[in-house]
């Protein structure tokens, strides 16, 4: 399952939430990041370790994919000559090789993600996962990630990577195996990106999820009454501020509804009012998501 969408819309939080839901249902699940930021382990107050599969909760694992390490792994598997992998370990070398080979970075990342989902793992002794939730990079890069196997297979018509590219592309195309989920906040820019994403994927998304939807407390008539009240003379400052805040909330909620209306039956998740997100808030979100779906 790939989560796509604009930066800052809560993809990582949602990836963790979906991971938690799947793990609750007894499926061995891994949440994959490709950012190097360790957002997912932080939600579970766990230490981030790039390139290491680690368990966050019973049945719920996480991995931050490092393309360079994925290449080493791949080479070790294909050609067990340690010295080659070690030479590639130099970041300058990798930078140049990756630059010389457009899409290599994405290809290695998606290759690793695919590997996680296979019944027979390339990593020695590693158990396969039932569900792989991918916190994909922001929109454009996310699409490049999904597209990499196909473009790679067509650019390099022969060779082992082209062969693997075709296999991965087939898995991604098979919508009984791969789900594409778009995430947005109820704001214009994020919704614009989601719609662009849907178009770029040929109109097919498995779900559209909107994060941080504010409670719609006030009707238009309420707003008018609030405005009238705000114009009375001699109001206490707190009262004036409370009224102004309510009016602002009504207009924000109306703007959010307008954005939601542009989407195709979106799943709405509420704004979480917590000092910081942790397991408890994720559980809340998981419940909300289970209820919405």
């Amino acid at each position: 399952m790939f989560l796509l969408g604009k930066g800052g819309v809560g993809r990582s939080t949602l990836a963790a939430t979906l991971g938690l839901l799947a793990a609750r249902q007894g499926r061995r699940t891994i949440v994959v990041e490709v950012s190097g930021r360790g957002d997912v382990p932080r939600l579970f107050a766990a230490k981030a370790r790039t390139g290491v599969e680690s368990e966050l909760a019973p049945g719920l694992w996480t991995l931050d994919v490092d393309p360079r390490q994925a290449l080493e792994e791949y080479l070790h598997d294909q050609l067990p000559l340690r010295v080659i992998a070690d030479l590639l370990g130099s970041s300058t070398t990798f930078g140049i090789v990756a630059a010389a080979t457009p899409g290599l970075r994405e290809m290695l990342t998606i290759g690793k993600i695919w590997e996680l989902s296979q019944p027979k793992r390339r990593v020695r002794g590693a158990a396969p996962y039932d569900v792989v939730v991918v916190d994909a990079p922001a929109t454009g890069h996310g699409l490049a990630l999904l597209d990499a196997p196909r473009t790679f297979a067509s650019a390099a018509a022969v060779g082992p990577i082209a062969r693997q590219g075709r296999r991965i592309a087939a898995t991604l195309r098979d919508r009984s195996l791969t789900a594409l989920v778009a995430v947005a906040t109820p704001e214009r820019a994020a919704v614009d990106e989601l719609i662009g994403l849907r178009r770029a994927l040929g109109g097919s998304l498995d779900a559209e999820i909107v994060n941080g939807v504010a409670a719609a407390r006030f009707s238009a008539a309420d707003a008018a009454a609030l405005r009238d009240a705000g114009e009375r003379p001699a109001l206490a400052p707190e009262t004036r501020h409370a009224l102004a805040a309510a009016i602002a909330a009504e207009s924000r909620s109306r703007a959010q509804r307008r954005q939601l209306a542009r989407l195709d039956a979106p799943l709405e998740l509420p704004l979480i009012l917590a000092r910081e997100l942790g397991l408890r808030e994720l559980e809340q979100l998981a419940d909300a998501l289970a209820a919405a779906a």
Partner: peptide
Amino acid sequence: LEAVAAERSALEALLGARLAGLVAAQS
């Protein structure tokens, strides 16, 4: 940054019980 903890009675006098309750929830 601005205090919004208005007196409930003041809100009710202005807006009636229902709307005052909503404003208080928003606050």
